[in-house]
Design a protein around this nucleic acid. Structure first.
Length: 660
RNA sequence: GCCGCAAUAGCUCAGCUGGUAGAGCACGUCAUUCGUAAUGACGGGGUCGGGGGUUCGAGUCCCUCUUGCGGCACCA
């Protein structure tokens, strides 16, 4: 008789032990101590989470995962999704289940049911879920035959599950997880029983979602939830959401009187004086950053349809364009014009004007271009997604040899710009490569992708806080691109900067330069934006700073105000002096108590309050109260103004001064 | 665009099962001249998002459009 086969397992402390092959994690845990077995909810084999009841068939590093392990959070959430599904099906028999994955901060489960769920149903569902958790049924796994599985789900009327089985590759086993009588098709792993889910869960919202993410498919009802190991963690998470909502740019935009939207202009912004000041500061900043390298231009807002036919937009992108005609009745002038959705065709026209030599390259044309795009109605979101916006756009016309250097130069500009606004973490650079539908030869794509992959490695090497990703097949039809993605205060990702190589447009418009050999060559065109959309970038800034802008961006940098009307004359002098020093200052001489005025300007997030009374008037000083601190400091007026002027120096200007 | 929800004074919101619109803040007037987060009194302000319907009667019920919100899809 041959001895039973053995497996060698390595524990986290380095200890190695031999066990009979096919031993389960649970048996191992029990062998160590019953209390350990009780605490353990899953195991990790060579770092991969697995069911505790899985037989171990090969040598591995093993870790027993208890419920407090960060890795168990994923399991808690996934198990919670299963409990949610059982609860829903037990409350509303006939509801079809589909999928229920773990996502960042929680999980969801998609259901198909003729009657939609509403948040009012949550209480009943959560109650049922608590019952199922209290029942504490073990999760048990079975591997089923593919055809049997389909038949079972077909008999249950679970058409979506049948489709899911079909989507599982033939090489993979069909796994079914039971929790009591209820079972679901699932890849796993799961914890040992429903009781391990605990009670720190909450259903968050309902939403519609297309089956398999395709808008041609039926719409399902998605229930979002979240779950944590401990109630404190759940409470902290809910608190964090609440805090994030307080800095929502739409709310702050109204409270700080920055901008508004109204019914007649869906997706287009009315910028108020304060918001527009921020906008102008931002543009001034970008303009300074372009000095020396770029030439700023301005191309028309509307152009004849024929130009957009040449560019390809009329064919590819017409659904998203606004078109305009003369509104008069004269029949002879009924040309169609389109509002520009992009600035590139305009810039190509400028490039084409006059013969260009290779000596002129790289030629960098920049524009704060206002573009209009007919975005789907459901896509609009405050300043983040609008139908009319300003791009800090530029197009670089260069040779293929210059491409890498230009991409790196743009990268430097983008990263240093973000750093100037305090975005030093949570930044992802994505390289999107050739899609199936594309123009240009494979040789061109090979070259560009090679160059850009090198640039991406360089970016990664120089900046260890930046995440890089490759999105295969996600490039534009005209060339590969980099996308720079910032994360906002509510944890949403927004694409800001972009660098896009374009093999298409110069040729479509017949743009060329004269090369060394006297021959005509189409230039490589690079589209790039730093902020992307100024509107969106300001939206992100509002949330990033929670409305407390640094002094250089603040619409109103200081308010001069008085204790009593005795100080009025002196306050006016202080105002005059501060304005002459270049500060954006306002004055508040209202006959109100100082408490009242302090409160009001603090709520308006005015960074500095310069309070003057009799004492200050006599000593040519001001009492400076800074936003966020509850004390004040008396300085001479000249000192106070000088300090504010220094602080209000934009970061790029300060850098320039320091390097000179 | 799709699913769901919502729209009442400048803002935040109340208005139960249909019976003729209310609060706080803001705004205006007057009084108050006050030392760092709300002084008091009085007053003005709404065709209840638009249109249609049911009803003796609609802010309230139904239909529709518009806009917004939460997601999904989209973001060349």
């Amino acid at each position: 008789m041959t001895p039973a086969a053995k497996v060698t397992l390595t524990f986290p402390d380095g200890a190695q032990r031999q066990y009979d092959k096919s031993i389960t994690g649970l048996e191992i845990a029990k062998g160590i101590s019953p209390s350990l077995a009780k605490r353990t909810v899953a195991m990790a084999l060579d770092g991969e989470l697995a069911d505790l009841n899985d037989p171990i068939e090969a040598d591995a590093k093993i870790e027993l995962v208890n419920r407090d392990d960060p890795r168990a959070l994923e399991l808690i959430r996934h198990d919670c999704a299963h409990v949610l599904a059982e609860a829903v099906q037990s409350l509303w028999p006939g509801t079809q289940v589909t999928i229920g994955p773990v996502i960042e901060n929680g999980f969801y489960y998609d259901f198909f049911r003729n009657e939609p769920f509403t948040p009012e149903d949550f209480a009943a569902i959560e109650k049922k879920m608590r019952e199922l958790i209290a029942r504490d049924k073990p999760f048990t796994k079975e591997v089923w035959d593919r055809e049997k599985t389909k038949q079972v789900f077909r008999d249950k009327g679970e058409a979506f599950k049948v489709e899911l089985v079909d989507a599982i590759p033939g090489t993979e086993p069909i796994k079914i997880y039971y929790q009591g009588d209820w079972f679901d098709l699932c890849r796993g792993p799961h914890m040992t029983s429903t009781g391990k889910v605990g009670n720190a869960f909450k259903l968050m919202k309902v939403a519609g979602a297309y089956w398999r993410g395709d808008s041609n498919n039926p719409m399902l009802t998605r229930i979002y939830g979240t779950a944590f190991a401990k109630q404190e963690d759940l409470d902290a998470y809910l608190k964090q959401i609440e805090e994030a909502e307080k800095r929502d740019h739409r709310k702050l935009g109204r409270e700080l009187d920055l901008f508004h939207f109204q019914e007649e202009g869906p997706g287009v912004v009315f910028w108020h004086p304060k918001g527009w000041t921020i906008f102008q500061q931002l543009i001034a900043y970008m303009r300074r950053r372009l000095t020396g390298d770029y030439n700023e231009v301005n191309a028309p807002q509307i152009l004849d349809k024929s130009l957009w036919e040449t560019s390809g937009h009329w064919g590819w992108y017409r659904e998203n364009m606004f078109a305009a005609q003369s509104a008069g009745d004269e029949a002879e002038d009924k040309r169609w014009f389109a509002l520009k959705p992009m600035n590139c065709p305009g810039h190509v026209q400028i490039f084409k004007h006059g013969l260009k030599s290779y000596r002129d390259l790289p030629l960098r044309l920049a524009e704060f271009g206002v573009v209009h795009r007919y975005e789907p109605s459901g896509a609009m979101h405050g300043l983040m997604r609008v139908r009319g916006f300003t791009q800090d756009d530029a197009h670089i016309f260069c040779t293929e040899d210059q491409l890498a250097e230009e991409c790196l130069k743009i990268n430097d500009l983008i990263l240093s710009t973000y750093a100037d606004f305090g975005f030093t973490g949570d930044l992802t650079v994505k390289l999107s490569t050739r899609p199936e539908k594309r123009v240009g030869t494979d040789a061109m794509w090979d070259h560009a992708e090679r160059v850009m992959a090198t640039v991406l490695r360089e970016i990664q090497a120089q900046n260890n806080h930046i995440k890089t990703e490759i999105n295969p097949g996600e490039g534009a039809f005209y060339g590969p691109k980099f996308e720079y993605v910032l994360r906002d205060a509510i944890g949403r990702d927004w694409q800001c900067g972009t660098t896009q190589v374009d093999f298409n447009l110069p040729e479509r418009f017949g743009a060329f330069y004269i090369d060394h050999d006297g021959g005509k060559k189409p230039p490589v065109m690079v589209h790039r934006a730093i902020c992307g959309s100024m509107e969106r970038y300001i939206g992100i800034l509002i949330e990033h700073y929670a409305g407390n802008f640094p002094l250089w961006l603040s619409p109103v940098q200081a308010v001069v105000t008085t204790i009593t009307s005795e100080g009025d004359e002196y306050a006016k002098q202080v105002l005059e002096q501060a304005r002459r020093a270049g500060l954006r200052v306002e004055i508040d001489l209202r006959n109100e108590k100082i408490n009242y005025k302090v409160r009001e300007h603090s709520l308006a997030k005015i960074p500095a309050l310069l309070v003057v009374g009799k004492k200050e008037a006599e000593t040519h000083s001001v009492s400076v109260r800074r936003l966020g601190s509850d004390g004040q400091k008396v300085l001479t007026t000249a000192e106070a103004i000088a300090a504010l002027v220094d602080e209000a120096t934009p970061p790029d200007v300060r850098r320039m001064r320091e390097t000179v």
